[in-house]
């Protein structure tokens, strides 16, 4: 078997695996109970799924110029995805989008209460 054929097969495996992760994310988006759990589902095609697809693409294209572009796509995505996730999660937190009955523990609520309490004390003093 030639090297080309091996690379093509590897590329195919990576592409299908990435697509499967995207599908699982689609299912999870519909089935998970609240916003934060859905965000976990969203992280999957955005990180590993995308990396797999990009690797598959790079294995097929095999030219330097294209691979640098793909590397750049990967870097941008990895650098920005956590920031976006944090912003959305933080905006969602103290509100109704979260099923608190499904939480085992919520240690952020106690923290925010304490800060609010400290602030009230300052206002009173």
């Amino acid at each position: 078997m030639s090297l080309d054929a091996v690379l093509d097969i590897a590329a195919a495996v990576f592409l299908v695996a990435g697509a499967l992760l995207s599908l699982a994310a689609g299912v999870a988006l519909l089935r998970f109970p609240d916003l934060l759990t859905r965000m976990h589902a969203a992280a999957k095609p955005q990180v590993l799924g995308l990396l797999l697809v990009l690797i598959g693409c790079a294995l097929r294209l095999r030219t330097g110029v294209d691979i640098t572009t793909l590397v750049l796509v990967g870097i941008f995505q990895l650098a920005t995805a956590p920031v976006a996730a944090h912003m959305v999660g933080r905006a969602a937190y103290p509100h109704d989008d979260i099923r608190t009955d499904l939480l085992v523990t919520d240690e952020l609520a106690a923290h925010l209460d304490r800060i609010a309490g400290a602030r009230d004390d300052e206002v009173r003093a």
Binding site: L15, S22, P45, Q46, G49, L54, G56, D66
Partner: peptide
């Protein structure tokens, strides 16, 4: 992300 995957697959 799915669209990105689709474009990359096409490429």
């Amino acid at each position: 992300a799915i669209i990105v995957a689709a474009i990359a697959t096409e490429a």
